[in-house]
Design a binder for these strands. Structure first.
Lengths: 110, 110
DNA sequence: GTGGAGGTTCGACAATTTTCGAACCAATCG
DNA sequence: CGATTGGTTCGAAAATTGTCGAACCTCCAC
């Protein structure tokens, strides 16, 4: 019956700044967001997290990003696995100018 | 001899994005930063935190902000108590465009 | 169907963060 | 000199986060 893993996402107009900043305050989570800048990716293809971390941990990382509204995580329409999308427009609409400086900054982070 | 409560501050060129974002991911801490936008303030005059919170707690809040490099906390040159300053230029130099959207956003935060 | 591969959830435990009282410190005012 | 004001530091206890194995689910491929 019900298409199962349809995970909950916060609506675009109720994103919380605290949650977004918190989610992006972690390098690993930020790296994923940065991976999605050029477009959606299959979860399995996310570098740096593809790394040597147990899948339950990876799943938790994605959960924080999803629940904060930073990414969307949905079943891959055409293909297997899940598709991750940066919710750039939603974030930009609610917190104009916020997302780019954050993702740009990592390029020169120590 | 040494003027005592000279608290340590991270140098401008070594601010960590993770630490800055984390510090600003908390509404109370963000509110203080916002209070300092128009210029330095005596610590005792910080609204919202002047609120009903024990001083040790308030001091801890300031510590997180200071150690992340968001604010400077120094003895008040002319006057009693301490002077808080937003390290706007330092943050801007290291993470261009980051600070304003964050502080602006609170105006419309739920 | 059976067997992965890909992924979520749950529970437990470790690690970090928060909160707050108590002790302490420095400067100012009587 | 006290005493008061404004503030930091230190524990310790509470709350939140992070990590990871085990169990489970689901879509393919065979």
């Amino acid at each position: 019956m019900s298409t199962p893993p349809e995970l909950p996402h916060p609506p675009a107009d109720s994103l919380s700044l605290s949650q977004v900043l918190f989610a992006l305050s972690d390098p690993a989570r930020r790296e994923i967001a940065r991976n999605l800048r050029e477009g959606p990716l299959e979860a399995a293809a996310c570098s740096a997290v593809t790394a040597d971390v147990p899948k339950s941990t990876k799943s938790h990382i994605l959960k924080v990003l999803r629940e904060s509204g930073v990414i969307r995580n949905e079943p891959n329409p055409n293909g297997r696995g899940r598709l991750l999308t940066l919710r750039r427009d939603d974030i930009e609409a609610r917190f104009p100018g916020l997302i780019d400086p954050i993702l740009d900054a990592d390029l020169r982070e120590s």
